[in-house]
């Protein structure tokens, strides 16, 4: 489990995030059956697994969207209890949700500042929001021509870019991305990968969930594999390859069948 502790910048004694024995049930289904996971400063951890392996559930627990039924989470060595997403935000944990979680009828700047609007007296400070939004987008080299456009009017790539920007802009310590590239065209995927490398370089810990296995090798330092609600393996990116990952994801039995097929397109979303 914690055999591989020499991540990129793990001079600190405690990992930035440490999850132990996380359990989550939905009715009779045990979505997570005791998962341990560490995350160090400035590293990118890839989280892979089949559909319904528990990847999204695990990250939603870390972002406070779900409350776990068992286990504990430590942030920089201190035990925390997230009751809702606002609690996780206080600890600088931000998440890009798979469904993006944008409000279609609110403009770009409003979505970027949703839940932490700058105020002037009792009123929203629109100028500060617009200027701040422009600066946030520029910093991540995201091009949105009009900040007063409603999010509903934007392309899928722009929407995903806004969701990523919102999570990355408020100096997070941990940035979780649940399939951030699923709806993107080739050029936009490249931009997101570049963005992950940029925020990583600034010391942010990134958790990346994706079905595009080839992307993992370009941004991740470590890869954790989940299967049916447990973490079955953890590999350092330098010490694994596509073939190895595929066999870990589908389980040993199906290796010969699936390896050839999944090496091509990388699996469906």
């Amino acid at each position: 489990m914690s055999a591989e502790r020499q991540g990129a910048a793990s001079a600190a004694p405690d990992p930035r995030i440490s999850m132990r024995g996380i359990v989550k049930r939905f009715g009779s289904v045990e979505a997570l059956r005791g998962v341990d996971l560490d995350l160090h400063a400035g590293e990118c951890l890839g989280l892979v697994g089949d559909n319904a392996a528990g990847k999204s559930t695990l990250t939603k627990i870390l972002s406070g969207a779900y409350v776990p039924d068992g286990g504990e989470i430590r942030v920089n060595g201190r035990r925390v209890d997230f009751r809702n997403p606002a609690d996780a935000r206080v600890h600088r944990i931000e998440m890009v949700y798979q469904d993006l979680s944008l409000c279609d009828t609110i403009d770009v700047a409003g979505n970027l500042f949703l839940g932490r609007e700058p105020m002037r007296g009792a009123f929203l400070d629109r100028r500060a929001m617009r200027d701040g939004a422009r600066a946030m987008l520029d910093r991540l080299e995201i091009k949105i021509p009009r900040l007063d456009a409603l999010v509903a009017q934007l392309s899928g790539g722009q929407r995903q870019a806004i969701a990523i920007c919102r999570a990355a802009a408020f100096d997070p310590e941990v940035l979780i991305m649940d399939e951030p590239t699923s709806a993107l065209a080739v050029a936009e995927v490249e931009a997101v990968l570049a963005l992950i490398n940029r925020v990583k370089a600034s010391g942010v810990s990134v958790v990346l969930i994706t079905h595009r296995l080839q992307d993992l090798f370009r941004v991740c330092d470590r890869i954790a594999v989940m299967y049916e609600g447990v973490k079955v393996a953890e590999r350092r990116t330098a010490e694994t390859d596509l073939q190895d990952l595929v066999s870990l994801i589908v389980g040993e039995k199906h290796v010969s069948k699936a390896a050839g097929a999944a090496a091509g397109p990388g699996g469906a979303a």
Partner: peptide, 16 residues
């Protein structure tokens, strides 16, 4: 109020 009407879960996740 607008955010809740547009996407209640998104509003909750934004800490509203």
């Amino acid at each position: 109020v607008t955010a809740i009407g547009a996407n209640q879960e998104a509003a909750r996740r934004a800490g509203i």
